[in-house]
Amino acid sequence: MNPADEELQRNIEKGHRIDDSLNSRAYQKVFDALKKEPYHLPSHFADRVMRRIDAQGSLSKDYFWFGLGLFTLIAGACVAALLANFKLDFGTFKFVSGYPGLFLFGVTFIALIHYVDKRFLSRMIHNR
């Protein structure tokens, strides 16, 4: 970097008087533009952030209850199946028992759709 340029930059920064050369005027324009704020947030920005914090809190509670419900349902179903000596050997169950991964895929897929739906909907609602 040119020492004269460095000196000129320092002088403009300190508010010293500069000559009327093209170089100096160009630097002055640059320094003036650099002081401009590039972006302004809306006046209710803080409210929007607080709303998202609230939404996140209630979302995590929702997931807790959803998880607990799902766990109870599966546990209950397993206990009931054990007590009743239930076997997947009739009708549709006979078909499904040949594809053990299908049931697991179904459950995972529904849970994934639920998650994506909640996430996008919640964000859209709270950004309004």
């Binding site: 340029d5 930059q9 170089n23």
Partner: peptide
Amino acid sequence: NYLFRARNLLKEKVKTYLGKEE
């Protein structure tokens, strides 16, 4: 270094505009 260099780059470009203006 980045600060001085970036301002220098901008100045060189602005100079081309100011030169045209003149």
